[in-house]
Design a protein around this nucleic acid. Structure first.
Lengths: 335, 335
DNA sequence: TTGTATGCGTTATCAG
DNA sequence: CTGATAACGCATACAA
């Protein structure tokens, strides 16, 4: 592959001059510039991004770490990030860490080896201290979907407690009093906070939730089915189902329908996330909108700014609140 | 950030020695190796991937170009790729080209600038000649979802003609004779081939499809709704709907249901792709399974092999055929 | 306006 | 077993 040297030779100029025309440097004669450009084209010259990164001490690629791509939620997140990097002609270096301490750590370190100076990371398994440490040493380090007080200005996150409250309130408004929760078995912040929010809202309305009104399962459709199956098997009485996410909500609905229980006339179901399937399933799912794409965009812009030297204000953070999307799966409580 | 030099100095050895322990080189004293490793740890040393790539002339990252990530289909594809690169500790450099000539070209070139020597690219807009040229100059260049005869051994693709035939045959087997097609308005290979397959199969059974039995729209749920609306508005008679993909099929079903037309008792609908939503929508969608994840894995392995020097056999290609997944949206024709 | 020289962090080829 | 030293491709401070 042709190098800067080759084309310098061919054009009969020095390396420096070629370098200047590549970077649109200021001090180059018009004729020279034109001739060099022509030769670059002819020889199919492509700047070597690695050499460039080495000498400039900055990579042209933006790092992202996320658990996986097959989940539409993360795909949407990646899409948000990509929508801003695309505009500024920056490539994405993707590292996956499957919600395990070791892999998440490795994912970040790989990005560091590539000298990415801006990155948005989704980490659930690593502890606060580790993340704080990264934030201290990497200017363009931004966390998404996580809040750590000490580095609040590096966090773009969703208020899951408020989310839980909103879910519960909506059901309460419809007259429901008998609740069950279909939750995730993975004890990361998210399910914990959402349940806390729900309990809080219910408590304010004089309702307490006993532990056996919560089923924990895998956060996918099958998990939702299993959880609902368990409630049904136990003979639990309820009219309102609060799910950890849309997939679980959908699974729960399927299981209800399989038992000839009508949604929403007999039982109401509410999801969380508002991913595509919420619109596709029948009845269409009432759910909470998780503005992940918007948040991803924000996180990316933030990372870019910080990496460029903007000093973040100390006392700020980027908190988002989920909003309710009313569709068809929630109805008035039967009295 | 600490460099190899720093740690050499600290350890009182030469650069070469440090480099050897980093790469698990053979000729290093046990004591020295241990000491150096210790110091690397203490100083938080991270090898510079760019410098490495520069000197070794090979990048440690695997390139992928695809239109976008928000589409579950491509997310699944990316997931397949990631599942193999993860094992060998290779990062993914992602470039998006939104089905436009210019952007697709740019996406590939960016990968080249990073000196990726293995990549799988999804390109629909670039012409054969350009792609053939890339294949000739990049050993690890593999195309996915496209077949070009001259570089057949670099292509991992789906036989869409066979797919069209399969769809049609399945409907014929159920006794259907009145068909409509809900197709994509983007005239790339895929919809064209599928329609060709359908027509071919129908023709063999003495059925010809007039042009007004095909509606073209955007390949998403809304497009499916619009297309179906058009058929309904025109008063078209049919009992079988063949959709370009699951999203369109789902949209078509919704529109039918809104008009109190029962699926599958009055009208049967078949999709294509078998993405997540096929399982979620009601009735569950009968569709064609597009083994995109498997294909992505294959493409990745291929790219890796070719990049490593394996010379592909001249006369081979990697063709996949979609298989039918029977669920609930197709029934016997009413007679 | 152009050229020369140096260094970025590594690997690899030599000698010791 | 270990140490100099020359690349790798490019940007840039300094000369001319």
């Amino acid at each position: 592959m042709a190098t800067i040297k080759d084309i310098a030779q061919e054009a009969g100029v020095s390396l420096a001059t070629v370098s200047r025309v590549i970077n649109n440097g200021p001090k180059v004669g018009d004729a020279t510039r034109k001739r060099v450009k022509q030769i670059m084209l002819e020889m199919g010259y492509r700047p070597n991004a690695n050499a460039r990164a080495l000498v400039t001490q900055r990579s042209a690629s933006f790092g992202i770490v996320l658990p996986e791509l097959s989940d539409p939620f993360f795909a949407t997140m990646a899409h948000g990030i990509e929508s801003v990097t695309r505009k500024i002609d920056v490539q994405i270096l993707m590292s996956t860490g499957s919600i395990e301490k070791a892999t998440e750590l490795k994912a970040i370190e790989t990005l560091l080896e590539h000298r990415c100076n801006a990155m948005v990371v989704h980490s659930k398994a690593l502890d606060d201290a580790t993340l704080i440490n990264f934030a201290k040493t990497i200017p363009g380090f931004v966390l998404i979907n996580r809040y750590i007080e000490e580095i609040g200005n590096r966090c773009v996150w969703l208020d899951n407690i408020a989310g839980g409250q909103t879910m519960a309130r909506h059901m309460l408004n419809q007259g429901h009093t008998k609740f069950v929760i279909v939750s995730s078995k993975y004890q990361i912040d998210d399910p914990v906070d959402r349940i806390a929010g729900i309990k809080q809202e219910l408590a304010e309305n004089g309702i307490t939730l006993s532990p056996d009104m919560i089923e924990y399962s895998t956060p996918d459709q099958e998990g939702g089915e299993i959880a609902m199956q368990n409630f049904l098997a136990k003979g639990t009485e309820f009219t309102a189902v609060l799910a950890y996410n849309d997939a679980m909500a959908s699974g729960a609905m399927t299981m209800l329908q399989d038992h000839n229980i009508d949604v929403p006339n007999e039982v109401s179901v509410i999801g969380y996330d508002d991913v595509l399937l919420a619109k596709y399933c029948r009845p269409k799912l009432t759910t909470l909108r998780y503005p992940i794409e918007m948040m991803a965009v924000k996180a990316t812009e933030l990372a870019l700014q910080y990496a460029a030297g903007t000093v973040p204000e100390a006392d700020c953070t980027f908190k988002y609140a989920p909003t309710i999307v009313k569709r068809e799966s929630v109805g008035k409580a039967i009295s």
